[in-house]
Every structure is written in C-alpha cells, then in structure tokens.
C-alpha cells in the first residue's frame, strides 16, 4: 500500500489508513511525487478552512475539541490539522494537542493529524497547506487548523484560511503586545475563552473595543465578531460554531472565499517551488563541493560560481 494513486482512490472511498499514509507523502513532498498535489487540488476547493490561533495555553486544543462536537452535531465531516510550532528543525518533538481531542478519534467523520517540520525547512507550512487540499478532496467540510500565531512562520497559513479565529483569555497580560504584533488585525472572529474565570468580563470589553476599532480599518461588510466561551465547561460553543458558519456564508457570497483560495494555492505553489529548488540545490552543491571549494579560496569568480550553481540547479530541476 504505497502507490499514491491507489492511496488516493482508497482514501476517497473512506479508508482512513490510506488517507493517513497519503498525508505522510504530502509531508515529505519532493520532486518525484509532487504530482500528487495536482491530483488532489484539481478536485478540491469547496471545504471551509478555519484557522484557530492564539497564545500557548489559551485553550485552542480544548476549544477545537468542543467545536468538533458542535460541527459534528451539525452533520459536517471535520478534519483537524494541529501544528507543532515548538520544535527546532534539528530535534524531535512531542505532539500533545491531540490528547485534548482524543474523544473524537474513533468518530468516522473526524480525522485529526499532527504536523511538524519533519526536519525539513519550511516543512510545516507546506505540509499543512497540502493536507488542506487532501482533506478537501476527501470530503471533509470543515478543516480546522490549530497554530500558535504570533510572530511564527505559520502566520502565513492563517492568512490564507477562509475564517480566522483569534483566541484570547482573561488576564493574558500581553494584550497590548499582541495588538502591536498585529495579531488583532487578522481576526474574523475573536474568542475570549476561559470566560468561566472572574476576570473575563474585562477582557471581553477590551476585545469588543478592539473589534470595533478594527472594523473601521478594513474593507468588506464583515464586522469582526467577539464571542465568549468556556472550552472547559462547554459554554458559548454553539454560538461560536454558528458565528464561524455565518462568516463562511459571508466569504462565499462576497467572493472573499475565491480570493482566499487563490491566495492559499498561490502560496502553496511558492512553497513547493522552494522545496524543489532547495532539494536540487543541495544535490548540486553535494556534487560541486570540491570545485566550489577551490574557487572560494581567493574569492575570485565567486559571483560567477554562484550563478553557475543556480544554472545547474535549474537544469537539474527541469530534467
């Protein structure tokens, strides 16, 4: 069970084992199998991609678990892509978001997958975007992506989700910090989670103010919504799910969905191109190491050498 075409067919027929294997191929996409993406993307584009971002500990994973239940009650098929941002390229990682969602593991209409960089530069973004395409083709209606947004490379994924949900919690000291960092400029829906805590009202007021302020600055008729939830106690979840759905109707009707889809896929093209370039660049460098070593000894012809490597890389790629 390793032929991608077979995997795609089986996954479409609902075989989760095949889908799981396929996702691994996407994580490790390279020149030999990048064609898989074409097979997937040509049929996708209808799912609702919901990005959920916020500081570690804000309650994203717990909230997603609740949202999955709410969406399932509305009869949607749900996929969750949980991104581990913490581990450096050079080491392994422990992925723990999943443990907050394990109650859904055996639900036939739910698929949860953790993503790391797999030791590949830019690995996370590419893997996540490619997986979105796969889940879309396999008939998942809601694709929820969990990331730690602020200042991380994954913000680029957030920017291409259909609906961006930004999570805060009471007493999150760096509200001002976050405002400066621009997190509050991207949200379609703001959630004040942990509203079971006594200091939640203040944060809620503050978020209303932020949303208000921001509504002035953006185009389109969507006014950023603010929803109070307690993921721990399951409060406000239905309202959040409905708000997210309302936003989806908005992006569909306003043409925003089309724009975001194109932006997402454009970005995917860029990431795949970068992956392939880097891959053949390192292969070329491997072969040319000795010669390059001689040139750099006195730095003469350095630029010419670099350009030669670029040409070789291009040539190799095209072959």
């Amino acid at each position: 069970m390793s032929d991608p075409s077979v995997l795609i067919e089986r996954a479409k027929a609902g075989d989760k084992r095949a889908l799981g294997r396929l996702l691994t191929l996407l994580e490790e996409l390279n020149a030999d199998n990048a064609w898989i993406l074409e097979r997937l993307s040509s049929e996708g584009g209808r799912a609702h991609v919901v990005g959920i971002t916020g500081m570690p500990g804000a309650g994203k994973s717990t909230l997603i678990s609740r949202l999955v239940r709410a969406f399932r009650d509305m009869s949607y098929k749900v996929a969750v892509i949980s991104i581990d941002p913490t581990s450096p390229i050079s080491s392994g990682s422990i992925m723990g978001d999943r443990l907050r969602m394990q109650e859904h593991a055996t639900d036939p209409g739910v698929f949860i997958r953790s993503v790391t960089n797999r030791g590949i530069l830019g690995g996370v973004s590419l893997a996540a975007l490619a997986m979105i395409e796969a889940f879309d083709v396999m008939g998942y209606d809601k694709i929820i992506v969990e990331t730690v947004g602020v200042g991380q490379s994954e913000t680029d994924i957030m920017n291409v989700a259909d609906t961006i949900v930004v999570l805060t919690m009471p007493g999150a000291g760096d509200d001002v910090q976050a405002l400066k960092a621009g997190v509050f400029e991207i949200g379609d829906v703001y959630v004040v989670n942990k509203s079971d805590r006594p200091d939640a009202a203040k944060t809620y007021e503050y978020m209303l103010f932020v949303a208000e302020k921001e509504a002035l600055g953006r185009g389109g008729s969507w006014r950023p919504a603010v929803v109070k939830t307690s993921a721990a106690l399951g409060l406000g979840i239905r309202e959040l799910a409905e708000t997210i759905n309302r936003h989806f109707s908005y992006v569909l009707e306003s043409g925003e969905k089309e724009r975001r889809l194109i932006a997402r896929r454009t970005h995917l093209v860029r990431l795949v191109a970068a992956r392939l370039l880097l891959q053949s660049l390192s292969e070329v460098m491997e072969g040319e190491r000795e010669r390059v070593g001689k040139v750099v000894r006195d730095m003469r012809g350095f630029y010419d050498e670099a350009m030669r490597i670029v040409r070789l890389t291009g040539k190799r790629l095209v072959e």
Partner: peptide, 10 residues
C-alpha cells in the same frame, strides 16, 4: 457541572 481535566505531555 465541573468539566474534566486532561494533562499535556510535558
């Protein structure tokens, strides 16, 4: 009423 608890891996 009180919800449940799950612990992160570390």
């Amino acid at each position: 009423v009180y919800g449940t608890y799950a612990e992160p891996p570390y």
